[in-house]
Amino acid sequence: MRIGELAERAGTTTRALRYYESRGLIPARRAVNGYRTYDEEDLRLLQQIRTLQDFGFDLEEPRPFVDCLRAGHPAGDSCPASLDVYRRKLDELDSLIGQLGAVRTQVGAQLARAELEAGAAIPGGPEPRCELTD
């Protein structure tokens, strides 16, 4: 198949395919007429790459999965190097979740403090001043 058909079937662009090719993630095969040619295995590699990118993996992280598929394994995540990438990604996600949890706690504390201060205004007295609305 040619590059346009592969891009359409994989739900990506020809530009992205050329980029993946330049990075060595999909093969650069050319027909006699100079057109790029691809087969079902290339589609499978591309689907693996796209799935991992959808999960938030950067472009180099799928390389072990692609290598695993190229080695003839039925799934790109059945090789030790691929499993290592999964483990590193989970560690990264756990760290980000922890950071977000800490930020959420801080924002909640700020909200509680601000609500207390706003509620502490003297009944019947002037409303707390807000520079954004004045």
Rank of each mutant, 00 (worst) to 15 (best):
130 C>E: 08
15 R>M: 02
128 P>C: 00
118 A>S: 15
74 P>A: 10
25 L>I: 12
85 V>R: 04
18 R>E: 05
42 D>E: 02
134 D>I: 14
41 E>Q: 10
114 A>G: 09
124 G>P: 07
18 R>L: 12
126 P>C: 05
64 P>E: 04
111 L>V: 13
50 R>H: 08
88 R>F: 09
101 G>R: 09
131 E>V: 02
4 G>W: 03
80 P>F: 14
73 H>L: 10
42 D>P: 06
91 D>E: 14
16 A>T: 15
35 Y>G: 02
67 D>I: 05
96 L>R: 13
115 E>S: 06
102 A>W: 00
71 A>L: 10
124 G>I: 04
41 E>C: 00
39 D>A: 09
38 Y>V: 07
24 G>K: 11
99 Q>M: 04
65 F>E: 04
80 P>Q: 14
69 L>I: 05
53 Q>S: 07
36 R>W: 00
32 V>F: 14
77 D>I: 13
24 G>V: 05
61 E>T: 11
132 L>M: 08
38 Y>S: 11
8 E>G: 12
41 E>W: 07
10 A>M: 05
40 E>K: 14
64 P>C: 03
35 Y>A: 08
90 L>P: 08
39 D>Q: 11
71 A>V: 10
86 Y>C: 10
33 N>E: 13
10 A>I: 01
119 G>W: 14
68 C>G: 00
86 Y>N: 11
79 C>F: 12
69 L>Y: 00
128 P>D: 09
121 A>R: 02
46 L>H: 03
92 E>N: 02
104 R>H: 10
112 A>D: 10
82 S>H: 01
15 R>T: 03
98 G>V: 00
53 Q>T: 03
37 T>P: 12
